[in-house]
């Protein structure tokens, strides 16, 4: 049974002027134990809002509809207290900027032991021992001394490690990582990715990894969901997606990024236009205005997510082959 099963999830925000903005439209997905599910998308794709909706962490004017079952238990509509309990103990979330989740006035040790005292009812001594073990687990050396330090005394990469250690204290079944390496240098990013992979193998934790960086996806994800304009465009396992993509948007993303391991010459392939404005989404496929394979019905009718191979889905009307995108020489 999957750890998390999301059915027909939509997230809408009420705007100041009285309208609504749909950030996520009718998304269904599942996350299995021990896998890394990569979520790729640009700004306005709804990649973060989906998960904030699932976790009950939307901004006050936001509302999630549909269903999200965690280990068989419905999350949407759960009381604040029950959600908090679940979030602390069985689901964890790591953010782009760890400083948003760490209290700058308390020592790291204090914040970590608090988690254990609250969720596992440990006494302080035992909690402290456990925290030292957790810091060592994320390869922070000199852990006992580090416990007394405050968040600002750590570098960005170290802070993210502390955040991971803190989240892993309760051995969650599901870890949601929202662009955890975007602010970090590539060298530190590599270390954090390796650490997450190690933890997954050790504890069989399901990891949802949200990012805009296809390189990171290629490195860490087992399965990938490509999002655009609040909808799923394509879903496949990572090898299939990179080798045998079937959606024009995926094609555009993969073809337009230069690679660090190959020298490209001339012009890069591009996706025309700009990311979608959620307040003015087109009636049909959100990607239609930028799509080179656009047909008349794309503008009026949202294509369904249909399978195009084993465990490979896409939402696109286009039937012919891809490869029309202007290519780099």
């Amino acid at each position: 049974m999957p750890v998390l099963e999301v059915r027909n999830l939509s997230v809408r925000f009420a705007t100041v002027s009285g309208g609504t903005v749909s950030a996520v439209n009718d998304i269904s997905l599942s996350v299995e134990r021990g896998e890394v599910l990569g979520i790729v998308g640009e700004s306005g794709s709804g990649k973060s809002q989906t998960w904030l909706g699932v976790m009950g962490l939307l901004a006050r004017n936001g509302r999630a509809e549909g269903s999200a079952r965690f280990d068989g238990r419905e999350l949407l509509g759960l009381s604040h207290g029950a959600l908090n309990e679940l979030r602390g103990a069985r689901m964890g979330m790591i953010f782009q900027d760890p400083m948003t989740a760490l209290n700058p006035f308390l020592s790291v040790g204090r914040q970590m032991t608090e988690v254990l005292q609250r969720h596992r009812g440990m006494d302080r001594r035992a909690a402290e021992r456990e925290c030292i073990a957790a810091l060592e687990m994320v390869h922070i050396t000199d852990a006992p001394r580090r416990l007394a330090m405050h968040p600002h005394e750590f570098s960005g990469g170290m802070r993210q490690r502390v955040m991971i250690a803190m989240t892993m204290l309760t051995r969650p079944d599901l870890l949601i990582c929202d662009e955890p390496t975007t602010f970090l240098d590539v060298t530190v990013q590599r270390q954090i990715l390796a650490l997450l992979d190690e933890l997954r193998q050790r504890f069989n934790t399901a990891i949802v990894f949200i990012t805009h960086d296809l390189g990171v996806i290629a490195e860490i994800a087992d399965r990938v969901i490509v999002m655009y304009g609040g909808r799923v465009m394509e879903q496949a396992d990572v090898h299939t997606l990179f080798a045998d993509y079937r959606h024009p948007y995926t094609e555009g993303l993969l073809r337009s990024v230069p690679r660090p391991d190959v020298t490209s010459h001339g012009k890069l392939a591009t996706i025309a236009g700009n990311p979608p404005d959620l307040a003015h989404l087109p009636a049909g496929c959100p990607f239609a205005p930028r799509c080179v394979y656009r047909e008349p019905r794309c503008e009026t009718q949202m294509p369904e997510l249909l399978d195009v191979g084993p465990a490979h889905w896409r939402a696109c009307h286009h039937v012919g082959a891809l490869g029309k995108l202007e290519t780099a020489a």
């Binding site: 590599r190 390189g215 290629a218 090898h239 660090p260």
Partner: peptide
């Protein structure tokens, strides 16, 4: 350390 957008190479 640069991530490569190709799962096999990565």
């Amino acid at each position: 350390a640069a991530p490569i957008p190709d799962p096999d190479a990565a």
